[in-house]
Design a protein around this nucleic acid. Structure first.
Lengths: 343, 343
DNA sequence: CTGAAAGCGCTTACAG
DNA sequence: CTGAAAGCGCTTACAG
């Protein structure tokens, strides 16, 4: 490979001068500079990454770590949009992104998702907070004292910065909107208690508070249905609920867009027309990017912006501009669509 | 940061011995080894990446380069599945993946998508062949003599290995299948001539040959409609065609699944029922992963397998096991679904 | 304005 | 079985 020495030989200077030219230092005679640049051009020299890293201690690489395989389509949109934001900032700063996934079940292979971090192959980490950050990762971060920013969760650790949406208020406002459309009986599709997801529980809290504040009667045990990420048994739950309900809901607030198709299927199976008999409101903003047969009223998170901000915060940490924990809360945009009807 | 020297001091040996233990060399006394391992464990030592790279010249990182932004949902499934396969191989070999995109329009920023490659920050590249490989990239590859494997295209350059599906035969067999279902007038939705995509043109050739071999009359100018990736004006094209057709097609073969919703919408608008009046067959295998309202007969590419094989080939090149161009052709699986009816 | 020296963390021969 | 020396490609003081 072509090194500074090769360039130096061709240009008839020392390799130190080459280094100066490469790094744009001022104290180089114009003529020398020209010779060096010509040699660089001729040989196609580019400074070797490893040499620079060893000196600076910075590798200009960050890791994007997700706790869910890329391929899970229900989460792909989320990941991709966040990634697009991160990438934009990385481009501007000539930073590269290493992509990693935390294994879902602990594999007994030699695979170590923290290896790049331990090896100092990355300057910092952006963790996609679709699941709680693993303990062993937390320990590594603490031990090696390198920065990490979490997107979509709000970890309490003092050394973790985060970026998140205002889920409580988004849900609160969504319910207000639903009420404006005349609905008085609203169901909520949430997550099983056992599943950790601060976002969804905030949305649930916002849902409840909003109904309370508006003096709308509700009984959580009846109108909050729970499921898992795959909505496995959700249709059955809906069938059961429909039998029990004395007052049938005229609107359903789904805590995640990915649940919408199953929710609609469940209600249709139970004899409802959607959205004629029951309005559907989602959360996330992905459903309308798929080929779903109805445009769904939903809450659109500024995921790309969140990715950008997360990257900015991380870069600040890496460059030592900011050492203490940073947080950013983003507002969500409600989008009325065909699935929300007046009652 | 903790270095070999720190470990050596604690264990009371030289840093060379530490290196030996870390690299699992045989000639270390068992007792010494224990002391060193204890020190490594206590200090949480992990070998610094940059030091190793400078020695070995290998950075155990590959770049995945795509000519389309991640976020383009029409291509997300493709990218993600390929990526999943690559990732699996990377895990096994402790290789990291840097993700990059070729800018769609030449930006006048300082962004250089080949920088990691020039800096020798990656040992090789996997290029997602959704567009033709850019000339400047080809030149860099040649100049720096480091390996590249293309997925989904078949570049002729002698230094580019590739992995692709057998598009011609897949299309050929698909048409045979359609004919088995009794159809005798079949339309094809292809790409505009100006758009480079060897795959799609192979599919078109397979379509034509299959009809010819079966002695089914066809007139390409009538039954091959063309569009761009976004299917922008496809509905208009269909409307025009419907007016001209003397014999209306009873089946439509879409060269890409992403076109299916627009094709169906176009035919429905023209008064057809789908699939009652016209069967629809796609290609790729993504459409059924979305919430589309009909299960579409389609051709499923083994994208994950292709990703794995591409990675394997690349690793072979990197490790010097194989120096000459390698290619692999994958067969496609036809999946009959609701959208293909007997006539 | 330019170059010789030292060092970043590691590995690879070479001695002993 | 273990260590001193040299070197991977670069940058950062230090001399001149």
């Amino acid at each position: 490979m072509v090194t500074q020495k090769d360039v130096a030989d061709l240009a008839g200077v020392s390799f130190i001068t080459v280094s100066r030219v490469v790094n744009g230092e001022a104290n180089v005679k114009e003529e020398t500079k020209k010779k060096v640049l010509a040699a660089i051009d001729k040989l196609g020299y580019a400074p070797n990454f490893a040499g620079q890293v060893l000196n600076s201690g910075k590798c200009n690489t960050i890791a994007i770590l997700t706790p869910i395989p890329f391929i899970k389509s229900s989460r792909m949109f989320y990941l991709m949009q966040v990634l697009a934001g991160i990438e934009e900032m990385c481009r501007k700063n000539s930073i590269d992104m290493i992509l990693g996934t935390v294994p879902e079940v602990m594999e007994n292979t030699s695979y170590d998702y923290l290896r790049p971090f331990k090896q100092k192959k990355v300057d910092g980490i952006i963790y996609i907070g679709l699941k709680k950050i693993p303990k062993e990762m937390l320990e590594e971060l603490k031990k090696r004292d390198r920065p990490c920013v979490v997107i979509g969760d709000r970890p309490r650790s003092s050394f973790l910065s985060w970026v998140d949406t205002d889920n409580f208020n988004a849900a609160y406002n969504t319910v207000q909107k639903i009420l404006e459309f005349g609905h008085r009986t609203v169901a909520f599709i949430g997550l099983e208690e056992g599943i950790y997801n601060e976002n969804i529980s905030e949305r649930e809290k916002g849902f409840i508070k909003s109904l309370q504040d508006s003096g709308v009667a509700y009984s959580p045990e009846d109108y909050i249905l729970r499921t898992d990420y795959d909505a496995s048994y959700l249709q059955d739950r809906i069938a059961d609920a429909v039998k029990k309900w004395k007052k049938k809901p005229t609107a359903v607030f789904c805590s995640m867009d990915v649940l919408v198709p199953e929710v609609v299927a469940g209600f249709v199976k139970a004899g409802f027309s959607v959205p004629e008999d029951v309005s559907i409101v989602g959360f996330d903003g992905f459903i309308n990017d798929t080929n779903y047969n109805i445009k769904v009223a939903t809450n659109i998170q500024p995921l790309k912006e969140m990715g950008k901000t997360a990257a900015e915060i991380l870069f600040n940490h890496i460059n030592g501009n900011v050492s203490k924990k940073q947080t950013a809360v983003f507002q969500v945009e409600f989008e009325v669509n065909d699935s929300l009807r007046h009652v």
